[in-house]
Amino acid sequence: MCHLDREDNDVATTLISDEMRGAVGTEMDRSVSFAISESDIRKWALAVYHPEPPPQLFWDAEYAATTRYGGIVAPEDFNPFAWMTPSGPRPAGEDMASPGSLEALLGIEPPPVRSGLNGGTESEFGVRMRPGDAITSVTRLHSYTEREGRLGTMLFTITESNWTNQGDELVKVVRQTSIRY
C-alpha cells in the first residue's frame, strides 16, 4: 500500500487548532445505505466504463448467475451512499463539497481553508456488494498533518471508513486523504 501519512513539517501558520487535534480518533459518521438495487449497480458501471459497455457481470443477471458470484455484484468502487440514505435528504444549503464540511460533521470549527482536493485513497476489499445489500459505513478521523506546498500551507486529513453488509461481513476499509489549502 502507498504511504499517505506525511510527517509534520514546519509551516508558517498552522491550520490545525487544538480543537481539531482533540478530535482525532473520533467517530465522525455512521451511515446505513438504502438496499442496493440492480439499477444502481448498472448505472455506476455504465459511468465508470463510459463510453464502452461495462462487463456483463454488472448488468446481466442471467449471465451473472453462471459466474463464481452466482449473480450480479457491484464494482469494488461502487458507492451506495451517494445522494441520500434512509436518514433522509440533507438539509437545504448543506454543502458536503465545501472545504469545511468534514469539521462540520465533527461539530467543530473548520480550518481557514478555501479549497480542497482528493489526495488519494487506500482500499482493502472484502466481500462484494450485491443487489439487496444494505451497507453500514463507520468513519473515523484518522489524522491531521500539514506541510508547505505550492499553494501555501497544505492540510492533509485522513479519514478511515469501515464498510460492512447486513450480515456483518467486511466489504472494505477505505482510508481517504483530503488536501486542503
Partner: peptide, 13 residues
C-alpha cells in the same frame, strides 16, 4: 478476469 479478485488498491492523486 471474473475468476480473479482485487484485494487492495491504493493511489495518490
Amino acid at each position: 478476469g471474473e475468476e480473479g479478485t482485487v484485494r487492495a488498491l491504493a493511489c495518490q492523486f
